[in-house]
Design a protein around this nucleic acid. Structure first.
Length: 197
DNA sequence: CTGTTGATCCCG
DNA sequence: GGGATCAACAGT
């Protein structure tokens, strides 16, 4: 594991932690964010911004904008661009607890239990009704909106889910013990690392 | 609980 | 052709 070379912890990691516990609203549903992953941008081989392309261009723009991509052809995943601008870093929203618009979220997700309504990045985006059309939204002022900062909840960390490169970085953060946190295993292509609790 | 697989599409 | 995924299914 380890960081190989000496790498200072980037700002996006602190931003990721700071998003936990905050409200996030879109299309009639509000969640409290319970699980996130930091993506470091230009230096992070797991980040979509590692190679600068039209898809990842939004990550090179101003912070607090929404980066949405389609995953495996079926799902949408929502990120918040964090800046600084020249780093193209962003935080993937992986899970949340629905606190408003419960009926609408159920309508979109089906009759799963409350803990699973917005568990997993694809499910979170689905519950919130987020699609590619929401790309570029400013989450401080738009219809897709982030709530005010809150006092940080207890936080656990571990390797990022589903990434095959830089899989040893413990850049996944979640609210300790929260039942809405996704319980997925890491990428089969990931070779090393630990798991959190 | 664990592991496997198919669905499906924007992007490089 | 691949992937920052999910749900369904089978086996332990």
């Amino acid at each position: 594991m380890t960081y190989g070379r000496t790498v200072e912890e980037p700002a996006v990691v602190e931003r990721a932690r700071g998003l936990l516990g905050r409200a996030f609203s879109a299309h009639g549903v509000t969640v409290v964010i319970t699980e996130v992953e930091a993506y470091g941008g230009i230096d992070d081989p797991a980040s979509h911004a590692f190679t600068r392309t039209p898809r990842s261009e939004i990550m090179y723009g101003p912070p607090w904008r929404l980066y949405v991509y389609r995953s495996y052809g079926l799902h949408h995943c929502a990120n918040i661009v964090t800046g600084p601008t020249d780093r193209a870093a962003a935080v993937l929203l992986r899970a949340g607890r629905v606190v408003a618009g419960h009926a609408l979220a159920e309508q979109r997700r089906g009759d799963v239990g409350p803990a699973r309504l917005a568990r997993g990045p694809g499910n979170l985006a689905a519950a919130l009704g987020i699609t590619l059309e929401d790309r570029g939204a400013d989450v401080r002022t738009g219809a897709v909106r982030l709530g005010p900062p809150v006092g940080p909840p207890p936080i656990s960390s571990g390797p990022r889910v589903g990434v095959s490169r830089a899989a040893d970085l413990p850049w996944r953060f979640w609210v300790t013990g929260d039942p809405t946190v996704s319980a997925y295993r890491r990428s089969p292509r990931a070779s090393s690392g630990t798991s959190g609790t």
